[in-house]
Nucleic acid binder design. Structure first.
Length: 345
DNA sequence: AATGACGTCAACCGCTCATCA
DNA sequence: TTGATGAGCGGTTGACGTCAT
């Protein structure tokens, strides 16, 4: 096991950090900032490599870090986001202010262990995504599962979906693809028969969240196409169309630089080989244009204002839930985005 | 009380990406 | 264009605490 180039120096200490080391690092960074991490240890008087300093600061010493157990809302969010973006812990962490990717990763891994232990005789759950044995719950085939060694292709590691193609898609394709995939593959979580609802992730049914979309885009052709294929979306879009609902972009983007529809976009994006951009025609520019700058600023403020995301901002659905006047009203208020939990077959 | 199984979490490792000369 | 370097990310490991036997 070799060390990093930054750790090749002699006398580089490893292992747990002492309180004295923590103090040195905190003192240095609070007065000088970190700038170049490779220079931090020397300037701070630490016998550590820069990488180790960075990790210690980010995962433990940062002043805005939140410690302690995850709240149920945070758990829900982690699970939902994981179903959408896969093992992109840093990305998930960016939606949970004060939480680190490491913390979320650890939480997830222990949660997975529990699930596996609880369901030793789980039915054979396969998707067409990967032939590798998976220890993660199926993410609707949208993201590869952990447990295997790192692949060389980071793009495919991020989101793999057999149904998404590189074809220059119209607005329909992305959701068509998801729905098509949903209809053709098993989405059941690997819980043992008769294990009961309590084995589902908090706040979820036995089916993973399928997609997330913004309540302001229901009138797009894409949504219309989706509505033809799914009764829930049909009722939802119809109701929203009647309500003349304003756009709302109050959730942080699920995918960098994108609105709440981003999951679909990124999947397309990955397969189109164009990273973090929609300019390739995979998805219409319409939604992007609707994303007004002032609303983006508002998002930023919200992230700062809220210690955690709560259900006042994130509406979660599953198709056993009906569209009631109250949740309809919540969406019409423009302060929500909708996370649709995949249909229970 | 001793011991082993298990859970948690901090830290490390190897890799990729971005940047710059 | 290419190679070097640093930053960042995800996977994995190992130490330590807790609990059950």
């Amino acid at each position: 096991m070799g060390h990093h180039s930054c750790c090749n120096q002699q006398k580089v200490k490893r292992g747990l950090w002492s309180p004295e080391e923590d103090e040195k690092l905190v003192r240095y960074i609070t007065t000088h900032g970190y700038g170049c991490w490779s220079e931090v240890p020397e300037k701070a008087g630490l016998q550590r490599c820069g990488k180790s300093c960075r990790l210690r600061w980010i995962n433990y010493l940062r002043p805005d870090i939140r410690r302690g157990r995850f709240s149920p809302e945070e758990e829900k969010l982690i699970i939902s986001l994981h179903a959408i973006v896969g093992n992109r812990w840093a990305h998930i962490a960016s939606h949970l202010p004060g939480r680190t990717d490491n913390e979320i990763k650890n939480y997830w891994n222990s949660w997975i262990k529990k699930k596996i232990r609880k369901a030793p005789a789980a039915p054979n759950v396969t998707t067409t995504t990967s032939s590798t044995t998976s220890t993660s719950p199926p993410n609707n085939g949208l993201a590869p599962c952990s447990g295997s060694t790192a692949t060389s292709d980071v793009h495919h590691r991020r989101l793999q979906h057999p149904t998404f193609s590189c074809a220059p898609a119209g607005d329909h394709l992305q959701l068509d693809a998801i729905i098509g995939h949903h209809q053709s593959t098993s989405l059941a979580l690997p819980v043992a028969a008769g294990a009961g609802q309590e084995d589902s992730p908090p706040g979820m049914s036995h089916h993973c969240p399928l997609f997330m979309f913004d309540t302001g885009v229901v009138s797009t052709p894409f949504a219309s196409a989706a509505a033809q294929q799914h009764p829930f979306i049909a009722s939802f879009t119809a109701a929203m169309a009647e309500a003349d609902t304003p756009s709302c972009y109050h959730l942080p983007p699920l995918v960098d630089g994108m609105g709440a529809m981003g999951m679909c976009m990124e999947a397309m994006d990955d397969h189109c080989g164009a990273r973090a951009g929609m300019g390739n025609g995979c998805f219409g520019d319409e939604q992007r244009q609707r994303r007004r700058p002032e609303l983006e600023e508002e998002e930023g403020e919200q992230l700062g204002q809220h210690e955690q995301w709560d259900e006042e901002q994130l509406l979660m659905w599953d198709d056993q839930e009906v569209l009631t006047p109250s949740n309809m009203e919540a969406m019409q208020s423009g302060a929500h985005s909708l996370l649709f939990m995949g249909p229970n077959a």
